[in-house]
Design a binder for these strands. Structure first.
Length: 466
RNA sequence: GGCGUCGUGGCCAAGUGGUAAGGCAGAGGUCUGCAAAAUCUCCAUCACCAGUUCGAAUCUGGUCGACGCCUCCA
């Protein structure tokens, strides 16, 4: 069986992946706060997680993947005030858009997609458990987590509490016992949304929801927890502390999640993506110009733990590679294969992905397979390589279109007349047969001006719109 | 101030102790009336310096440079 190795942030090294239960692997990835359009940076963890889930499904009989929707948060409240739109209108709209955008990137829907607001009771319950075990305390209407109650605090992020406090730029709130304590529950005032709780009307702190939803969705301990590197501290560190605190564990973070994977950030032309720089790239805008698969391949063109610099070139190169793969597939349109009969063990792509998601290597391998397919000179070989190509593509979540559609073959825009195109091609071929190459070339340039490219193949002339 | 990451050919990007994958671009060849596609060949000693080693892009120390987190953030 293929062996998966992944880099575990908790141990800061690449490890063999050993599931809690080999018959049922469970994974959680922090999902979006739905208050705006999803940008390209939001897509990276989703695509990487999706890829890992696909690999896991290849190896293990059952995989449950949960990823949440955060639908209560100060950012949402602010967006609601700014746009004078009810909160649930904002959250339902942007959740729908997020899911649509991810789908177009080939991200399979999570098995479970819990909403924070559906777990308020459970969050209150978890806080109560922390209070009962002296891991949390109430103060000035807030409930706070006491970081001194958890001895491994800082293990995930490699931080030392004392150092943090010394260099901190944030003033310590009056209601905190320790500077590092963080909010579990905070009061809601005026028109802020909230729920009744033993500590008054309020709402949960940011980190609490993921502790609750991951546990309720998957049970503890589960196998893998993912997210962006910027979440390591404080979000994930605090999730661990809360879950351990609630369950009376004061040391071992692995009673929560065994492995933690984190993707590096994405830069826009070398700069951090941020509102102030005005370089936020929304997936929506991109999808108007390029198919989702291009974006997906571009996102996995580099290793997930390396920063990815997003430029026009990144996109262009992904497009070129996909065109090449689709062309090799097009060449063997007539060959029918049964992918299910493919032997996973021999997959070079699966092997590459099993090595901590070495996507660059996987891409190199799939190009190699396509090359083999193009060169194949017998039906047996064509079958063999096509099967391997399709299996690999499915694993990577690409080549889901039909080659004809992708390459624009025989497809005219509304303002193009395909009958006319066919007629011109026929005329050109007659000219070619009569060795009137001047006329043939004239017709080609005429078609070119119409935005039509033609290609003479062994099976006749194929045209596609640019 | 603390923690951490990175620096591989013109560009993108793997490799992390045994002599530099892959893609793009470029050069040349095959095929084609031409073109396109396909295919073949060629194209780097791994920021710098000093060590460890039979052997280093890969380990250690230092220098320079880029960047992230510590505050909402994927």
């Amino acid at each position: 069986m293929a062996k998966l190795r992944i880099h575990n942030t908790l141990e800061k090294k690449k490890e063999d992946f050993i599931p809690v239960d080999p018959n049922h692997v469970r994974m959680y990835t922090c999902g979006p706060t739905v208050y705006n359009y999803a940008h390209i940076g939001n897509a990276r963890p989703a695509v990487i997680s999706d890829l890992l889930v696909r690999v896991l499904r290849c190896i293990y009989p059952k995989v449950t993947y949960a990823s949440n929707i955060t639908d209560i948060d100060d950012k949402i409240i602010n967006a609601s005030i700014e746009t004078k739109t009810p909160i649930d209108e904002i959250t339902s709209k942007f959740e729908r858009i997020y899911n649509e955008d991810m789908a177009s990137l080939g991200v399979q829907a999570p098995d479970i997609q819990p909403h924070a607001t559906d777990f308020i009771d459970e969050m209150i319950g978890l806080i109560q458990m922390m209070i009962d075990k002296n891991a949390a305390y109430e103060s000035e209407g807030h409930v706070l987590f006491d970081v001194t109650s958890y001895s491994s605090y800082g293990k995930l992020s490699g931080r030392d509490l004392e150092d943090q406090i010394a260099g901190s730029r944030v003033e310590v709130a009056s209601y905190k016992k320790n500077a590092g304590d963080f909010v579990l529950w905070k009061p809601s005032v005026d028109n802020q949304p909230g729920w009744e709780s033993p500590w008054g009307f309020g709402r949960p702190g940011w980190h609490l929801e993921c502790s609750v939803m991951s546990e309720k969705s998957l049970g503890l301990p589960f196998d893998i927890h993912g997210g962006g590197m910027d979440l390591i501290f404080p979000h994930h560190e605090n999730e661990i502390a809360q879950s351990c605190g609630a369950h009376g564990e004061d040391k071992d973070p692995k009673i929560f999640s065994r492995y933690w994977i984190h993707n590096a950030m994405l830069n826009m032309n070398g700069e951090k993506m941020s509102k102030s720089l005005g370089n936020i790239f929304y997936i929506r805008d991109f999808l108007d110009k390029q198919p989702g698969e291009v974006l997906r391949l571009a996102l996995i063109s580099g290793h997930y733990r390396q920063p990815l610099n997003w430029t026009d070139d990144t996109i262009e190169q992904a497009r070129i590679i996909l065109d090449k793969l689709y062309r090799s597939l097009k060449k063997t349109d007539d060959i029918k294969v049964d992918i299910d009969s493919f032997d996973n063990e021999s997959s070079t792509v699966l092997n590459a992905l099993c090595d901590d998601l070495n996507t660059s290597k996987a891409i190199a391998e799939i190009i190699e397979i396509a090359k083999n397919l193009s060169k194949a000179n017998s039906d047996d070989l064509k079958k063999k390589f096509k099967k391997e190509l399709l299996f690999s593509a499915n694993l990577m979540g690409i080549l889901q279109e039909s080659p004809d559609v992708w390459l624009g073959i025989g497809k005219a825009d509304d303002n193009l007349d395909s009958d006319n195109i066919e007629k011109l091609i026929q005329e050109r071929n007659e000219a070619r047969a009569a060795k009137d190459f001047q006329k043939a070339d004239d017709i080609r340039s005429q078609l070119n001006e119409m935005g039509i490219e033609i290609e003479d193949t062994a099976d006749g002339t194929v045209w596609s719109s640019k």
